[in-house]
Write a protein that binds this DNA or RNA. Structure first.
Length: 485
RNA sequence: GGAGGCUUCGCCUAGUCUGGUCUAUGGCGCCGCACUGCUAAUGCGGUUUCGGGGUAACCCCCUGAUCGAGGGUUCAAAUCCCUCAGCCUCCGCCA
C-alpha cells in the first residue's frame, strides 16, 4: 500500500482549515511513513475526522433561506407528494419568530457581557449598583433565551416534517402513476416452451432451497430458512454483487444493523415510514431496514473535503422490516419478508452531481440485473410513492412469470441534501462549507433476486439454470437440480 | 455489570484545584504575503463551526452561540455541582 504525498496531497487538501490531514487513497505513489497499517486492496480512506459542531439552530430538509426566498417551490413539492402544504406558512412564521427573538437575545446578552466586565473592577456602592442592574439583566437574558429556544425548536420540529423537495419533472401521483423509462431483456414464453411455470416457492421447495414452514414455526410468518443450494445461492449472489461494486470503485462495508434514534431520524425513516421500523425499547435502538442508514450515518457530523468526493460505499447487511402496512400482501414465499440480506450502494457527492450519480447508480443496477439475465423494466416512481428523503426514485422491476407482473427488485433514490442536512454532513470546497448530496441504490436484495432467478430460469423438470455470471460463485454449477423428496 | 482515568477552535497541548484579566496558550500542519535566482529556510499575518444583522451581492463589518452533550449554581462558568455519552485501563460475565 502506498500513498499520495507531496504536491498531490497538497492539492487534495488545499483549503485553509481542511477536514483531511492525511489521505490513504487508492492510487499508488510512493512509500509514506505516515500510515501505521496496510489497508490492502480495499483501502478505505484514512483520515482524521473533523467533527462538525453541534448547534441548537434548526437544520432540516432545506436551507431556511431558500424557503424564505422561494416558498412556492416547497409548497408545490408538498402538494405533489400529497402532504401538508400549510406547514410551509407555519414554518415561515416560526422562522420569523425565531429570528426576531434571536435579535433580542443577542442584544441583551451583549449588554450583559459588557456589564459583567465592569463588576470585578468596581468597589463598594458602585459595585452594589452594578450587581443590582446585572441581576435584572440576567433575568431578562434568561427570558429572551428561553423564548429563542422555544421558537428555534418549533422551527426545527416543522422543518423536520417536510419531505424532500421533489424534482419538478417527477411524475405526479400515487403508486400506479409511475412512468416506465425502459424495458430490458426478453420475457420467456412458457406456453411456447410447452410447460406451466412454477412459482418461486414451489421451485425453492423442489430444490431444497427455501423452507418457509420452519421459518414460520421458529419465528412466525414472513420468516424463512434458506437451505442447501438456497443458502449457497445467497452467498453466491452476495459475493458477485460485492465483486461488481468493488470493481466499480465502491469500498465494501459491513455495517451495524442497530442504530441510534438520531441516525434513524436523520435518514428520514422515522417519519411516514416509522411504522415499518423495528424498535428495541429497552435499549432505544432501531433495527435498520437497509444499510443505507448506517452508511448515511457513517459520516454524520463530519466535514468532507471536496477532493475526496465522490465517496462510494457498498454494504452487505441484514435488513429488518415490520411490513406493518402490508398485511395480506405477498404472503406466499419470500417476496416480502421481515428479515433479509442486501447489498446496497451508497454515494456521497457534490450537490450538483447528484442527478448524474443517480443515473450511474441506475446503470450499475441495470448491469447487475442484465448479468443475471433477468427481464426487467425501469420506472420513474411517482411523487406520492417517494420516501420522505427522496427527490427522485428509480425502481428496477423484474418480471415475475407466475404473477404476470414486473415487481420491484432494486430501488435507487437521490436524496439530494435531505440526509446530509439532517445528519450534519458537509463538504468543504475552498472556503465554502455546505451540505452535500447522498444517494442510495440496491444492488442485490437477496430474496427478491432469488424469486426472480428461480422463476425466470426454471426448466420444465423443475431445475433452474444458473446464469453464467453466478457460476464461478457456485463452484462452476450450471444447474440447480431438484432433490429427492 | 463494577471501579478509576480521560474528552479544549484540523492534530498535539496550556488553562480547570483558587469562577471575571480566556478576545481559550503554545507547537505542528495548512493558507496568504514578504524575502532569497527555483525548492528549502526565515519573518509577518491568518487559520472552529453555526445563527442573526448590515450589503443588490461578494469581500468585509457588527453581534450572539460554541471548550464531548444536556441541565443546575452565579451578576458572571472551559473552570463549581448533577445527569448522560464516547474513549482508555482494570475487575466480573459472555459468544
Amino acid at each position: 500500500m502506498t500513498w499520495l504525498v507531496g504536491p498531490v496531497r497538497q492539492a487534495l487538501t488545499s483549503t485553509r482549515r481542511r477536514a483531511v490531514t492525511r489521505l490513504c487513497p487508492r492510487p499508488v505513489a510512493e512509500e509514506s511513513p505516515q500510515c501505521p497499517e496496510d489497508h490492502g486492496e480495499f483501502a478505505a480512506p484514512w483520515y482524521s475526522v473533523e467533527p462538525a459542531r453541534t448547534h441548537r439552530y434548526p437544520d432540516g430538509v432545506i436551507d431556511l433561506r431558500v424557503l424564505r426566498d422561494d416558498p412556492d417551490r416547497v409548497r408545490a413539492s408538498q402538494r405533489a407528494r400529497g402532504e401538508d402544504v400549510g406547514i410551509v406558512d407555519a414554518l415561515l412564521s416560526a422562522d420569523e419568530r425565531r429570528r426576531s427573538s434571536g435579535v433580542r437575545f443577542d442584544e441583551l446578552r451583549s449588554e450583559q457581557k459588557q456589564l459583567g466586565k465592569l463588576i470585578p473592577k468596581a468597589d463598594g456602592e458602585e459595585k452594589a449598583g452594578l450587581l443590582k442592574k446585572a441581576g435584572e439583566l440576567s433575568a431578562a437574558v434568561k427570558a429572551a433565551d428561553a423564548e429563542q429556544d422555544e421558537a428555534a425548536e418549533e422551527t426545527q420540529r416543522l422543518l423536520r416534517q417536510l419531505g424532500n423537495v421533489v424534482y419538478p419533472d417527477v411524475p405526479v401521483g400515487g403508486e400506479e402513476d409511475f412512468t416506465v423509462r425502459e424495458t430490458i431483456g426478453t420475457r420467456r414464453d412458457f406456453a411456447a416452451e410447452g410447460f406451466e411455470p412454477k412459482d418461486h416457492l414451489e421451485l425453492g421447495q423442489l430444490l431444497g432451497a427455501i423452507d418457509v414452514e420452519r421459518g414460520a414455526k421458529v419465528s412466525g410468518s414472513r420468516f424463512y430458512y434458506l437451505t442447501g443450494v438456497g443458502a449457497l445461492l445467497e452467498l453466491a449472489l452476495v459475493n458477485a454483487a460485492i465483486a461488481q461494486a468493488t470493481a466499480a470503485g465502491f469500498t465494501p462495508m459491513l455495517t451495524p444493523a442497530l442504530v441510534k434514534p438520531q441516525t434513524m431520524e436523520g435518514t428520514g425513516f422515522l417519519g411516514q415510514a416509522a411504522q415499518d421500523v423495528y424498535h428495541l425499547e429497552k435499549d432505544d435502538l432501531y433495527l435498520v431496514g437497509t444499510s443505507e442508514v448506517p452508511l448515511a450515518g457513517y459520516h454524520m457530523d463530519e466535514i468532507i473535503d471536496a477532493s475526496r468526493l465522490p465517496l462510494r460505499y457498498a454494504a452487505f447487511s441484514p435488513c429488518f422490516r415490520r411490513e406493518a402496512g402490508s398485511y395480506g400482501k405477498d404472503t406466499r414465499g419470500i417476496f416480502r419478508v421481515h428479515q433479509f440480506d442486501k447489498v446496497e450502494m451508497f454515494s456521497y457527492v457534490a450537490p450538483g452531481e447528484s442527478e448524474a450519480e443517480h443515473l450511474r447508480l441506475l446503470e450499475w443496477e441495470k448491469q447487475w440485473l442484465t448479468g443475471l439475465e433477468l427481464p426487467f423494466q425501469v420506472i420513474d416512481v411517482a411523487t406520492g410513492d417517494l420516501g420522505s428523503s427522496a427527490a427522485r426514485k428509480y425502481d428496477c422491476e423484474a418480471w415475475v412469470p407466475t404473477q404476470g407482473k414486473y415487481r420491484e427488485v432494486t430501488s435507487t433514490s437521490d436524496c439530494t441534501e435531505f440526509q446530509s442536512r439532517r445528519l450534519s454532513i458537509r463538504m468543504r470546497e475552498g472556503k465554502q462549507v455546505r451540505p452535500l448530496a447522498t444517494l442510495n441504490g440496491t444492488l442485490c436484495a437477496v430474496p427478491r433476486t432469488i424469486v426472480a432467478l428461480l422463476e425466470n430460469h426454471q426448466q420444465a423438470d423443475g431445475s433452474v439454470r444458473v446464469p453464467e455470471l453466478l457460476r464461478p460463485y457456485l463452484g462452476g454449477r450450471e444447474l440447480l437440480e431438484p432433490v429427492a423428496a
